[in-house]
Design a protein around this nucleic acid. Structure first.
Length: 298
RNA sequence: GGCGACGUGGCCAAGUGGUAAGGCAACGGAUUGCAAAUCCGUCAUCCCCAGUUCGAAUCUGGGCGUCGCCU
């Protein structure tokens, strides 16, 4: 079976611009690896492709912005998309920058412990360090590696224990295991300064295209409401600060996102292609394809 | 040329004798059902020189620089 081809890169790296030509060349369908492009109506701020050029895309426009989403669901949907593509005898091209989702897809995730709102409700208002102490009693190993201020992970660990009766540390072993798919991972890399430059341009462009109006018309839920570009504009629309400040925050948060994306990418065996300031996305395609072909036909 | 004010990390900025707050930015890391989220970590000896003092970013003198006003 053909390995799946994964194309990663930070926001504003230009990876998306290469995706469609690469897919055409390879006879592939694209599976989006983007936690926010999943939402309908979030087009400008997620820089969603407008013209798909006849390439079939998956995991785009799947959800209403008010809906919540999570890793397990991404995994299920992505697996379904991939097997569908393979039944059609096409190659799989995964494109995006959500490191957690890629890790889950490649390595798997433990199941059987969905979010439990009722349990979580019993924890609300309890201080994080108190919860951490509680975790230490039921799951020493997880408590040791989760910081006492990391409320989100403490809560999840307690939840898993409450739902399954077993410590999280016993269940989450997948990331150290075998890959679920044979894959080749390529990445588009640029300097921080270049990324910043491109992010600025892109933000101006988003504004010109009507990001503010787009956000005004949306009802953002817990997950979609975290998206860079959306939460800041929402703050502006709510009167928390002016438009200039919103723009400044979008740039700042974009750069922070880029940095955190980078720490995920280090965990994969990425074949990087360096893009210079003047490179247009299409110019990268031959290199990307060579990476795939090189690794795919030993 | 004269008078005055000021000179603290990339930026803003506390601190007026007791051994450098804070914010912003930057950077590194974590990351298994919110992940474009969340969390953790790193980052100055206070323009320069001399002096006073047990001890100075804080006081004194000189120098350099910036700003304002005046001529």
């Amino acid at each position: 079976m053909q390995p799946i081809f994964v194309l990663v890169g930070p926001t504003a790296s230009g990876k998306s611009g290469s995706a469609i030509p690469v897919a055409k060349e390879l006879g592939a369908e694209i599976v989006s690896l983007d936690s926010m492009a999943l939402y309908r109506g979030m087009d400008i701020g997620t820089d969603k492709p407008r013209d798909l050029h006849g390439v079939r895309h998956h995991l785009l426009d799947l959800l209403d912005p008010a809906e919540r989403f999570d890793l397990a669901r991404y995994l299920a949907d992505a697996d379904a998309a991939i097997s569908g593509i393979r039944e059609r005898n096409k190659r799989v091209l995964i494109v995006g920058g959500t490191g957690l989702y890629l890790m889950g897809l490649l390595k798997g995730v433990f199941g059987g412990a969905p979010r439990d709102p009722a349990f979580r409700a019993t924890l609300s208002g309890v201080a994080a360090d108190t919860l951490h102490a509680r975790l230490r009693e039921v799951d020493e190993a997880t408590a040791a590696r989760v910081h006492q201020n990391d409320r989100r992970r403490i809560v999840r660990a307690l939840e898993v224990h409450a739902v399954t009766g077993r410590p999280l540390s016993e269940l989450q072993t997948q990331f150290e295991g075998e890959d679920r798919y044979a894959s080749v991972v390529a990445g588009v890399r640029r300097s921080r300064d270049d990324l910043r430059r491109r992010a600025r341009l892109r933000i101006d462009q988003m504004w010109a295209e009507g990001l503010v109006e787009e956000v005004r018309g949306l009802e953002l839920g817990d997950t979609a409401g975290q998206a860079v570009g959306y939460k800041e504009v929402a703050g502006f629309l709510a009167g928390e600060y002016d438009e200039g400040e919103a723009k400044r925050l979008v740039l700042r948060n974009t750069m922070r996102l880029i940095r955190r994306q980078g720490t995920w990418f280090k965990r994969f065996d990425v074949h990087w292609v360096d893009a210079g300031p003047t490179d247009d996305p299409a110019a990268l395609c031959p290199k990307l394809i060579a990476i795939y072909r090189g690794d795919a036909t030993p």
